[in-house]
Design a protein around this nucleic acid. Structure first.
Lengths: 149, 149
DNA sequence: TGCAAATATATGTACATACATTTAATGTTG
DNA sequence: CAACATTAAATGTATGTACATATATTTGCA
């Protein structure tokens, strides 16, 4: 469905405004679909994002700072998201021995198991991008990189 | 800057995953920039979004339902965002005479003035899309529409 | 007409976001 | 080495998001 119909706005100031609105709308649309998927596993998108970063580090620990650096949403509050994951026993938190200001965060076996289950679901849905060819997906990435230049 | 460097992830499963992550990241990046711009005017992005819809209707009223239908983020709580705008006297809320379940929402003169000021700022920044040509922006919109097919 | 279903909005709750401030540990430098 | 700046994380507050539920009004139809 064209963006004009999605938000019932017939005209845009120019192609830039239209692309901007389309970008924000589509991102929200994808995240909503992904969020619904995670709900069955009692996890939110940012929580999943952090778990995946921790798996990438495993068995080495990550710090809150590293999480923020690698998260999709830089401004979100990694500290409190880790709180929730810790409460669910999906990660552990321990003062870093070499720098007691920092906290070593590690994914637990339970966390790894959960991610394994989620991988299947996420992969099978191809993250909702399956209408594009690989060529088009690559083209899209290039355009997005250019926006942030 | 390439997405690999932005989130310090060197490899992706495939072009689809990379495009997905790039899309969500870029959308957040743009919205953060836009939000910072609005902050000087003591307004948030969703509040701005709603004000703009109301201006499009002016002097006719909108209802909460119409706002939800046209908002970029369908699931956000229009009712409570209108609360905030009403408290700032940027909109008025009045029971609709012909259907007392509905509420007529209108932008005030104060709201229109604020938008006029913001238009300049928003336009001058071209919403952060100025690195693209008009052709590329149009191409981007086409790809995004295709994702949501 | 009367009563259930549908509609329009508001409210409650849990969690996330954005940003300022606080607390504690570590570096730096005079 | 003491004083001050810097760094890492946590906390506070206001707002927004997601979703379930409540309240009031209108519609449909037996």
């Amino acid at each position: 469905m064209k963006i004009e119909d999605e938000i019932k706005q017939r005209t845009f100031r120019d192609e830039y405004q239209k692309a901007y609105i389309n970008l924000v709308f589509t991102s929200g649309w994808l995240q909503l679909k992904q969020g619904a998927m995670f709900k069955d596993f009692n996890l939110t998108s940012p929580q999943f994002n952090i778990l995946r970063i921790l798996r990438g580090q495993h068995p080495k620990p990550a710090t809150v700072n590293m999480l923020i650096e690698r998260m999709l949403d830089k401004t979100s509050n990694a500290s409190r998201i880790v709180d929730k994951l810790e409460a669910k026993e999906l990660v552990t938190r321990k003062v870093c021995p070499s720098n007691r200001r920092a906290v070593d965060i590690r994914i637990t076996d339970k966390g790894l198991e959960l991610l394994t289950k989620l991988d299947d679901v996420v992969n099978s849905q191809q993250l909702g991008m399956s209408n594009l060819t690989a060529e088009e997906a690559s083209q899209l990435s290039a355009l997005l990189d250019k926006i942030r230049d």
